[in-house]
Design a binder for these strands. Structure first.
Lengths: 137, 137
DNA sequence: AATATACACTTGCTTTTAGCAAGTAAAATT
DNA sequence: AATTTTACTTGCTAAAAGCAAGTGTATATT
């Protein structure tokens, strides 16, 4: 978060979470990294929700400073930067999956594939470990 | 959320969640209702984070409109209003618990009691059902 | 080698939202 | 009847978001 007021909100776990990733754009960036395989600046831009370039830049800096994502120079194209989730960021997956489970119930227009939600509800841990593979390379 | 731009963000589950409860004050109100037993306007005010009266009023209206909380006149004092989580709101508990689990790991100043986190990690479903009792009366 | 293009921001400006203090109205207490 | 409590509402200021255009560096094209 950019909000100076809440930067040091530790103590309460919910408040701490909010101070670390508690705004809609941060959640969407985490989603992109965690489930959509997006890793580059322009990929976040093209995600569809229409984030502004300056806001994206700020969120990426914040999330990196909070240790949730990391920025590295791309191994192939050395001029590009690759973003990825840190261990700390990856560990947000259970929370994200719980949110998706909830949203599937209450959003009549949900895009969550039925196969995904079935796997999530049958064996969330197996799904989590499976998704994890794509994040660690 | 108050943001007119994201009011109808359905489809993507994360985006949908953000449009329904995706700001720090909403999360804190849900926390208060879910884990702290707070149910009255003034109790949210006194929660400690220092929410402004106008912002609280707006968030309560938004959360009610989104069907996450409900406002009723207090049975004892008929002039007062009691807020409570709806079924839809209660079902956010797994997400909230996952967030708490995460925060306990990464916040060095966490206030999450060790007994709570032990129960959460050992048998989250049992803890959830236990917490549920306090919400349904 | 020079020009063009892509990429990742940065800057300046406008609009929106948050935050703060004071005010209001209805009900409850004294 | 007067005061206090409760739950907002209003008006103003400050902060953040949003938008369009610009900048600098590296790669690609001619």
């Amino acid at each position: 978060m950019v909000d100076e007021r809440t930067k040091d909100w530790s103590g309460c776990p919910v408040r701490f979470g909010m101070s670390q990733f508690g705004d809609k754009w941060s959640f969407l960036i985490i989603r992109d990294l965690m489930f959509k395989g997006r890793r580059y600046n322009h990929e976040f831009m093209e995600a569809g929700e229409g984030i502004s370039t300056n806001i994206l830049a700020r969120r990426l800096v914040d999330l990196e400073r909070n240790g949730i994502i990391q920025k590295k120079t791309d191994l192939v194209k050395k001029s590009k930067f690759v973003y990825s989730l840190t261990e700390k960021g990856i560990e947000l997956m259970p929370m994200m999956l719980a949110m998706m489970d909830w949203a599937e119930k209450y959003d009549p227009n949900t895009e969550v594939p039925e196969s995904f939600i079935k796997r999530l509800r049958k064996d969330p841990e197996a799904l989590r470990l499976d998704l994890l593979k794509d994040l660690q390379e």
